[in-house]
Amino acid sequence: MDHVSTIEATKAIVTMDVAHTGIIWGWMITLNMWAKSIGTGVILVGAFLLYRHKHEDMPSLRWLMPLISFIALNVFLFFTLIDLHQPFRMIHIFTHPHWTSSITVGAWLASIFLVLVSIMMFTSFFTHFSEFRKNCAVAKAVRSKDGLYEKVFPFTVFLAFPVTMYTAIIMSQSAARELWVPGAELIQMLLAAFMVGSASFILIGGKWAEAVKKDLAMILAISVLFSFIMYMGEYFFSYKAAEVEATLAYIHSGGPYFLDFWTGMLLGYIIPFIIATTMNDNRTMMKFAAVTTFIGLYFAKSTWLEIPQLLPLS
């Protein structure tokens, strides 16, 4: 028991504590948020592009936008479902909704959003590929409803805002984790959507007009810059509650979260900002920036999600 004498007990020491440990919300929830940002981001950025530019400048946008959103939203819902310990009971959210819960409100909004995106995807897909299943009765019926796209689109754009931001309210309702400040998280969620929304179009919009590409570079640069500033503000200047400081100490003190956080900052924010502001006419470099944005955002989200869960609560 030699080691006992070496304790400098200037602080109280816990000698027995069997608190429930482990990360409760881990990589599946990170992927959930990451995919949701893509699903809503392409709609938000797409709406901006459709408002600013002619359809001919970005010919594939009309059908690719809902398609990417549809795929991303299904990834988001898939990880939401498999993260539940009782996935079949997901239906309870619809049969026994508890409206004070942002999980409930978010699930309903996301479901409605997915329905609208699905309508847009099917109508635009069958219209764009007019030869595909030309004689199929279902395809014909969907093509005849092409006008729905324009009717549904404004509602979809409107819904994209709360759908992308409601996770911030879930984090705010997680009263045990003070690092997640709702005001900051709401904006971070929105900026994340603009980041990956613009990155998605940079990857697929190779033949789009130069003016569109410039706009995409601008959206990417501004969103990563603002998001980066917010992270840095919280990282360096969080002289707030003891819990927030203790949480940030996990990153400051080095270790895996230090590496993850700065990998995220470098790939998701610093590199895309430099490229989008200085080399935005270089297609290859812009695609590289788009890819690093996707990777960096995952690391940033993952770190920010997990570190508050390392704090002892009792």
Partner: peptide, 26 residues
């Protein structure tokens, strides 16, 4: 019987008093 196992309550409880039962998975 109603719990879906989302663990939101575990994230929300400031006292760390809630656990996921490994037998009922709720």
């Amino acid at each position: 019987e109603r719990c879906i196992g989302c663990a939101g309550c575990m994230m929300a409880c400031p006292y760390g008093a809630i656990y996921m039962d490994p037998e009922s998975n709720t």
